[in-house]
Computed example of a mutant assay.
Amino acid sequence: MTPVYRQIIDHPSAWTRRSLGGDGPLRRRLTAAELDGVDRLLDATAHLAPQQATRADFDHPAVNALMAGLRDEIMHGRGAVIVEGLDPGRYDAERLERIYWGLGTHLGIGAAQSARGDRLGYVQNQADDEVKRGYRSLRELHMHTDSYELVGLMCVRKAKSGGLSGLVSGLALHNEILRTRPELLEPLYRGYRYASDEARFSSKAITDEAIPAFCAVDGVVSCCYEPAHMKNAAQYLGEPLPADLAQACDYFDELSMRDDLALRLQLQPGEFMLWHNYICLHSRTAFEDDPQQRRLLLRLWLSVPDGRPVDPAFRIRAETYERIYREARARAA
């Protein structure tokens, strides 16, 4: 277990809704030159399936400069960006997928998100999903982190109602816990074993190692938090969560939804968010679909070589999905 970090984090990534004054400072509108570069890349890669494009295929000076700036903000600045300016009337769903995947190649390596091997996840209600994964449902999703270092969502179609996205800095939550309930940091740094919904269909339902909610490596604090997976593991093990961890998770959840800390926004078609998954947590309100125009977001999970220094246990979640996908391919062979 890494030592508990006991200083207030004074860094742009420890933002709050109050300090930002809303989501405006996270927003970046594409320029005419950048949009022209995107159009040229769409033409140049039209012979490829959207996810066949590589970083070398998606190379243009204006787009390169755009993505270098976004990467710097995500990795070293506030940890999140919201990009606007893609006209959904001009780009259909296939072209938006091509754009989003191509831009993602500038940031990291697309990773499998399920046993299906989807590297660009379709965040859409699928009533027949036997695994009941959250991103294939209509239900509310509490504040949590995902499994890889960088995560993104692009809106293709909005819901009939609901489906607001939430974003909160895990480092701001760390600051608030340190100020108000510092005794709760220790159980969060200790963490607990994980059991994802999909892992129960694999050879190993529960991780061997505890995964901490916070770690501090080389003086850098990071966050990895999914309480539902901890509760699943406790159920499999036939034991309750440790009392101090359960109390810490309850307080963490309470803070993560506070209006002065968390942002809530409705992504519009053509807009997309990218964030550092070890800095920011995200959520979603429940939604109602239009049967004729079902809500659809595209999700990226990106691994980053030589990325943020974190406890190796953070990467166990990613390794779990890689293993689940390998096993599914072996069964299908």
Rank of each mutant, 00 (worst) to 15 (best):
R157E: 13
P242G: 13
S165N: 14
R17C: 03
V4F: 10
C215S: 14
A213P: 10
V168A: 03
I74T: 11
R308N: 13
E34F: 03
F287L: 11
D57T: 01
A286G: 14
S161E: 13
C223E: 03
A210Y: 08
L48K: 00
N277C: 07
A53R: 01
P3V: 11
L263C: 02
E183D: 13
H106P: 15
L20A: 06
D23H: 06
L86F: 08
L48Q: 05
R329W: 00
M1E: 10
P240T: 13
D72K: 14
Y278P: 02
A333C: 05
D250T: 10
Q235K: 13
R308E: 15
G21P: 04
T16N: 02
E34W: 04
E288C: 10
Y192K: 03
E239V: 15
K158I: 15
P312L: 12
D197I: 13
G21H: 04
R95W: 07
E322W: 05
R317C: 05
L300M: 14
P12R: 01
L263E: 01
D72N: 15
D43S: 04
L300D: 14
G24T: 13
V221Q: 00
T145Y: 01
L300H: 15
E149C: 06
L48D: 06
P187H: 10
M143C: 07
L41H: 03
R95K: 09
F201L: 09
Y91G: 00
L30E: 02
L237Y: 05
R323F: 04
D72C: 15
S196F: 11
L48Y: 00
I211G: 12
S19F: 03
L267T: 14
G89R: 06
P291Q: 03
A32P: 03
T54E: 03
T2V: 12
V4N: 13
M230I: 11
G307Q: 00
L20F: 07
L297Y: 10
Q266M: 11
S303Y: 12
R139P: 10
E327W: 02
A80Q: 04
H11E: 08
D59R: 02
D72T: 15
I8V: 12
L20C: 04
Q235E: 15
L96V: 09
V131W: 13
P242I: 13
Y189S: 12
D289E: 08
Y194W: 12
I74F: 08
D306K: 07
H282K: 04
Q113F: 05
F252V: 03
L107C: 15
D146Q: 06
G152C: 12
R98K: 01
D36R: 01
R331H: 10
K231Q: 08
D289N: 05
S13W: 01
V63F: 04
L297N: 10
D311L: 06
Y236L: 05
N64E: 09
L30I: 02
L86E: 09
Y251L: 07
A68T: 15
G117W: 04
